[in-house]
Simulated scan of single mutants.
Amino acid sequence: MQRFLVLLLLLLPAAAFAQAWEPYANARFGFSVDIPPGFTLSREADNGDGRTYANGAATLAVWAHYLTSGDFEEEVADRRVTYQQEGWDLSYDRQAAGWASLSGTRGDTILYHRVVRLCENAVASFVLEYPQAMKAEVSPFVGKLVKSLHPAEGCTSAQGAAPAAAQ
């Protein structure tokens, strides 16, 4: 009996991670991303540009928008400056043609922002924010979120521009 309980406790985290991810496709901007298990829809944008999900104190915002001034690189640079002005200590900052990832902390909150280039001068992003206390539960989702955020098929100007992050 004791062995059974130990085995059950060892398998619980793996079982929780193996739960179904919910696909989200945004028809307005032509991108998709997989939503981790445990995150429930808390708000849908009225204009159809994205959604916000919650899992306890963790939030996941997924959206897209058109670049109104500047190019992709300027968009990422502006976001970087805004985070720094808001007091985020960015400890991870990686950018390549067509994608960027920024991560850091502010107090006991962790932030991960992934942005990818889309067609028609648009970009899609997800921002995952969660308290340090939820790190063991939430941080394993980041890799799959990064891999799943991509432009729709047929978006030839962005196709291949946002490769999955190295694990």
Rank of each mutant, 00 (worst) to 15 (best):
F4A: 00
V6N: 12
V6W: 15
V6R: 15
L7T: 04
L7R: 14
L7V: 02
L8K: 07
L9A: 14
L9M: 14
L10C: 14
L11V: 04
L12H: 10
P13F: 09
P13Q: 01
P13L: 02
A14L: 15
A15P: 12
F17L: 05
F17H: 09
A18T: 03
A20N: 05
A20D: 08
W21M: 00
W21P: 02
W21L: 00
E22W: 07
P23Y: 12
Y24F: 13
A25C: 09
N26L: 06
A27P: 15
A27L: 13
R28T: 07
F29R: 04
G30L: 10
S32A: 15
V33E: 03
D34I: 02
I35V: 15
I35C: 08
P36W: 07
P36K: 04
P37G: 03
G38H: 11
T40C: 02
L41H: 11
L41Y: 14
S42E: 13
R43D: 10
R43N: 11
E44V: 13
D46Q: 13
D46A: 12
N47H: 10
N47G: 04
G48R: 09
G50F: 11
G50T: 07
T52S: 11
Y53S: 00
A54L: 13
G56C: 03
A57L: 12
T59Q: 06
T59C: 03
T59F: 13
L60H: 10
L60N: 06
A61P: 07
H65P: 05
Y66I: 01
T68D: 05
T68K: 13
S69C: 03
G70W: 09
D71S: 05
E73V: 03
E74M: 12
E74D: 11
E74I: 03
E75S: 09
D78M: 06
R79E: 06
V81F: 12
T82I: 05
T82A: 13
Y83G: 01
Q84L: 03
Q85Y: 09
Q85G: 00
E86M: 14
G87I: 06
W88F: 04
D89R: 06
D89N: 10
D89T: 06
D89E: 07
D89V: 03
L90D: 02
S91T: 14
S91F: 09
S91M: 06
Y92A: 00
Y92T: 00
Y92C: 00
D93S: 07
R94T: 00
R94A: 00
Q95D: 01
A96I: 01
A96L: 05
A97N: 03
A97R: 06
